[in-house]
Amino acid sequence: MAFGSVVERNVQRPLMRLISMGGAPILQQLHLEERLLRRTSDNWCIVNDGTAPPTIVMGVSGKVSELVEVEPVLRDNVPVVRRFSGGGTVIVDQGTVFVTFICNKTAVTGLQPFPRDIMSWTGQLYDYAFSHRKFGGNAQSITKDRWVHHTSFLWDYDVKNMNYLKNPKRAPEYRLARNHTDFLCRMNEYMPSRSVFTEGLIAALSEHFTIQQTGPETALSHDNDFEPSTKLLSPQDLQDIISSKESSTVQRVPGWPQS
């Protein structure tokens, strides 16, 4: 897996604050990202190595009934989060490595703040696929002056967890209507360790930015009254989706509170 180096070394680089976390819950990570996007003016990179428990994460406009197998999710108590950014639906766990960039529009010289352009730039830092199989899923949120690009990398994954997701009705042409297991691959089949990946990423990023390690507690000190739009869907939210699809007399899933 190649890491890019595409800027001249004598150019003064902007500052990027790097937050490294291990196993932070994905809901906490997304709340942090949204706060840093909307309430700070710094450039940030967040690396989170794994998360627990296994959690489904949806884009802001995704329809649960079209993307999630709701009844098994309720039965097995799988959390479902609707994040603040666009993009598709993933299930993440301890085998997922997360990388997020939160940048000012002027942070990368010549970069236009559009998804395709951001993808092109991050593609110089790391890959998203090996051959015809994908191991990285990404999404963006773009505001007036800033943007966020976050990626979940499948270092490993549990095949049975993919059964909680439906094949999306709208998918990129290159997916070729393949199911999740035929479409995806594991990074650990191609790289020796997670640290090789993260260290290579930071080295490539340092060609663009001056990197400054920052603790999560420092980042969290910004604006404690911020109310994120990323939400954990409640069991009742999911049960209502089943009810709206079937009938008002649908039987409740055992173990969840009655309305």
Rank of each mutant, 00 (worst) to 15 (best):
S141V: 13
S120I: 09
S131T: 10
G123E: 14
D117E: 14
F114R: 14
D145G: 02
Q124P: 02
P115H: 12
W121G: 00
M119D: 15
W121H: 09
D127R: 14
R116L: 10
H132Y: 09
Q112K: 07
W121T: 03
I142E: 06
N138Y: 08
A129R: 13
L125W: 04
Q140I: 01
G123P: 13
F114G: 03
F130Y: 10
Y126N: 02
W121F: 15
I142C: 12
S131Y: 12
S141P: 07
K134P: 01
H132T: 15
S141C: 15
R146M: 08
A129W: 00
K134E: 01
P115M: 10
D127F: 03
G137Q: 08
F135L: 07
R146C: 07
R116G: 06
K134H: 03
T143F: 04
M119P: 00
R146S: 07
T143H: 05
D127P: 05
S120H: 13
S120W: 09
F135T: 01
K144P: 02
N138M: 12
D145E: 11
S131C: 10
T122Y: 11
T122I: 13
G123A: 14
S141I: 10
F130R: 12
T143D: 08
R116C: 06
Q124A: 11
Y126G: 06
F114V: 11
S131L: 14
D127V: 07
P113I: 00
F135G: 00
G136L: 02
Q140M: 02
F114W: 04
D127L: 10
R146D: 04
Q140Y: 01
Y126H: 15
G136V: 06
F114L: 11
G136N: 03
I118M: 08
A139S: 13
Y128V: 15
D117I: 04
T143M: 03
I118C: 06
D117L: 05
T122N: 05
I142S: 04
F135S: 00
R133F: 00
K144C: 09
P113F: 00
S131V: 09
G123V: 15
Y126P: 00
S120G: 10
D117Y: 06
W121Y: 13
P115G: 10
K144R: 15
I118E: 05
